[in-house]
Protein backbone atom coordinates (compact mmCIF):
# COMPACT_ATOMS: atom_id res chain seq x y z
CA UNK A 1 0.00 0.00 0.00
CA UNK A 2 1.21 3.50 -0.83
CA UNK A 3 1.68 5.97 2.01
CA UNK A 4 2.48 9.63 1.80
CA UNK A 5 3.40 11.60 4.88
CA UNK A 6 5.42 14.58 5.96
CA UNK A 7 8.42 13.78 8.11
CA UNK A 8 10.49 16.61 9.53
CA UNK A 9 9.03 18.94 6.95
CA UNK A 10 9.67 16.74 3.94
CA UNK A 11 7.01 14.89 2.01
CA UNK A 12 7.89 11.20 1.90
CA UNK A 13 6.12 8.57 -0.16
CA UNK A 14 6.62 4.86 -0.21
CA UNK A 15 4.99 1.53 -0.94
CA UNK A 16 4.72 -0.42 2.32
CA UNK A 17 3.44 -3.70 3.65
CA UNK A 18 0.31 -2.96 5.73
CA UNK A 19 1.88 -4.58 8.80
CA UNK A 20 4.94 -2.35 8.69
CA UNK A 21 5.19 -0.52 12.00
CA UNK A 22 5.68 3.22 11.85
CA UNK A 23 8.94 2.92 13.78
CA UNK A 24 10.31 0.50 11.18
CA UNK A 25 9.13 2.79 8.40
CA UNK A 26 11.03 5.69 9.96
CA UNK A 27 14.15 3.67 10.69
CA UNK A 28 14.38 1.24 7.80
CA UNK A 29 12.58 2.95 4.93
CA UNK A 30 13.52 6.57 5.65
CA UNK A 31 16.81 5.82 7.43
CA UNK A 32 15.88 7.97 10.42
CA UNK A 33 17.54 5.76 13.00
CA UNK A 34 17.45 8.27 15.84
CA UNK A 35 14.11 6.83 16.93
CA UNK A 36 14.99 3.76 18.97
CA UNK A 37 13.18 0.55 19.86
CA UNK A 38 13.41 -0.52 23.49
CA UNK A 39 10.54 -2.93 24.01
CA UNK A 40 7.76 -4.75 22.22
CA UNK A 41 4.83 -3.83 24.46
CA UNK A 42 4.43 -0.05 24.16
CA UNK A 43 5.96 0.28 27.62
CA UNK A 44 9.29 2.07 27.28
CA UNK A 45 8.65 5.10 25.08
CA UNK A 46 12.06 4.95 23.35
CA UNK A 47 10.26 5.17 20.01
CA UNK A 48 8.29 8.32 20.84
CA UNK A 49 7.79 10.74 17.93
CA UNK A 50 5.43 13.66 17.45
CA UNK A 51 2.43 13.33 15.18
CA UNK A 52 0.77 16.67 14.65
CA UNK A 53 2.77 17.84 17.68
CA UNK A 54 1.49 15.10 20.00
CA UNK A 55 3.77 12.44 21.44
CA UNK A 56 3.02 8.97 20.11
CA UNK A 57 4.78 5.62 20.47
CA UNK A 58 5.74 4.82 16.90
CA UNK A 59 5.98 1.11 17.69
CA UNK A 60 2.25 1.03 18.33
CA UNK A 61 1.13 2.44 15.05
CA UNK A 62 1.19 1.08 11.54
CA UNK A 63 2.83 3.13 8.83
CA UNK A 64 -0.48 2.98 6.94
CA UNK A 65 -2.22 4.60 9.90
CA UNK A 66 0.22 7.48 9.69
CA UNK A 67 -0.59 8.08 6.03
CA UNK A 68 -1.21 11.80 5.53
CA UNK A 69 0.12 12.89 8.93
CA UNK A 70 2.90 15.27 9.88
CA UNK A 71 5.62 13.64 11.92
CA UNK A 72 8.55 15.08 13.80
CA UNK A 73 11.35 12.74 14.81
CA UNK A 74 14.39 13.52 16.92
CA UNK A 75 16.27 14.34 13.71
CA UNK A 76 13.80 17.13 13.04
CA UNK A 77 14.06 18.87 16.36
CA UNK A 78 17.38 20.68 16.24
CA UNK A 79 18.34 23.33 13.74
CA UNK A 80 21.82 24.83 13.73
CA UNK A 81 21.51 24.85 17.51
CA UNK A 82 19.95 22.26 19.74
CA UNK A 83 16.25 22.60 20.53
CA UNK A 84 15.76 24.04 24.05
CA UNK A 85 14.73 20.66 25.41
CA UNK A 86 17.85 19.05 23.94
CA UNK A 87 19.98 21.89 25.27
CA UNK A 88 18.45 21.52 28.72
CA UNK A 89 19.22 17.79 28.72
CA UNK A 90 22.82 18.61 27.82
CA UNK A 91 23.17 21.31 30.45
CA UNK A 92 21.72 19.12 33.18
CA UNK A 93 23.33 15.75 32.34
CA UNK A 94 19.88 14.40 31.51
CA UNK A 95 21.30 11.47 29.58
CA UNK A 96 23.94 8.81 29.99
CA UNK A 97 23.85 6.00 27.43
CA UNK A 98 21.46 8.07 25.32
CA UNK A 99 19.27 5.23 24.14
CA UNK A 100 16.04 6.38 25.77
CA UNK A 101 16.97 10.00 25.09
CA UNK A 102 15.33 10.67 21.72
CA UNK A 103 12.03 9.31 23.00
CA UNK A 104 12.42 11.09 26.30
CA UNK A 105 13.17 14.40 24.57
CA UNK A 106 10.16 14.04 22.27
CA UNK A 107 7.89 13.16 25.18
CA UNK A 108 9.21 16.18 27.08
CA UNK A 109 8.70 18.48 24.11
CA UNK A 110 5.10 17.32 23.82
CA UNK A 111 4.57 17.69 27.55
CA UNK A 112 5.88 21.26 27.53
CA UNK A 113 3.71 22.13 24.57
CA UNK A 114 0.70 21.06 26.63
CA UNK A 115 1.92 22.33 29.99
CA UNK A 116 4.48 25.09 29.49
CA UNK A 117 5.23 25.48 33.20
CA UNK A 118 4.81 22.13 34.89
CA UNK A 119 5.61 21.37 38.51
CA UNK A 120 8.09 18.61 39.31
CA UNK A 121 5.19 16.29 40.03
CA UNK A 122 3.61 17.11 36.67
CA UNK A 123 6.88 16.42 34.87
CA UNK A 124 7.20 13.07 36.59
CA UNK A 125 3.61 12.18 35.76
CA UNK A 126 4.05 13.45 32.21
CA UNK A 127 7.01 11.13 31.64
CA UNK A 128 5.28 8.04 33.03
CA UNK A 129 5.43 6.38 29.62
CA UNK A 130 9.19 6.63 29.15
CA UNK A 131 11.68 4.33 30.81
CA UNK A 132 15.33 5.13 31.43
CA UNK A 133 17.74 2.72 33.08
CA UNK A 134 20.75 5.03 33.54
CA UNK A 135 19.79 8.36 35.10
CA UNK A 136 17.34 7.44 37.83
CA UNK A 137 15.29 10.25 36.22
CA UNK A 138 16.68 12.86 38.64
CA UNK A 139 18.51 14.81 35.95
CA UNK A 140 15.85 14.15 33.33
CA UNK A 141 13.24 15.82 35.51
CA UNK A 142 15.68 18.63 36.23
CA UNK A 143 16.29 19.02 32.48
CA UNK A 144 12.60 19.29 31.66
CA UNK A 145 12.03 21.83 34.42
CA UNK A 146 15.01 23.80 33.14
CA UNK A 147 13.67 23.67 29.59
CA UNK A 148 10.37 25.06 30.87
CA UNK A 149 12.26 28.01 32.29
CA UNK A 150 13.97 28.72 28.96
CA UNK A 151 11.04 30.84 27.87
CA UNK A 152 9.60 30.45 25.44
CA UNK A 153 9.93 26.83 24.44
CA UNK A 154 8.93 26.81 20.80
CA UNK A 155 6.46 24.14 19.87
CA UNK A 156 8.20 21.47 17.82
CA UNK A 157 8.02 22.41 14.19
CA UNK A 158 5.02 21.01 12.39
CA UNK A 159 5.71 21.43 8.75
CA UNK A 160 3.11 23.01 6.55
Amino acid sequence: MRVSLTVNGKLRESEVEPRLLLVHFLRDVLGLTGTNIGCDTSSCGACTVLIGGDSVKSCTMLAVQADGTEITTIEGLAGEALHPVQEAFRQNHGLQCGYCTPGMVMAAASLLAEQPHPSEEEVRAGLEGNLCRCTGYHNIVKSVLAAADMAPVPAPAVAS
Partner: peptide, 9 residues
Amino acid sequence: EDPPLLTGE
Protein backbone atom coordinates in the same frame (compact mmCIF):
# COMPACT_ATOMS: atom_id res chain seq x y z
CA GLU B 1 29.10 12.67 24.10
CA ASP B 2 25.75 14.40 24.36
CA PRO B 3 25.03 16.35 21.14
CA PRO B 4 25.13 13.30 18.84
CA LEU B 5 23.07 11.29 21.30
CA LEU B 6 20.53 14.09 21.71
CA THR B 7 19.96 14.47 18.00
CA GLY B 8 19.78 10.86 16.90
CA GLU B 9 23.13 11.10 15.13
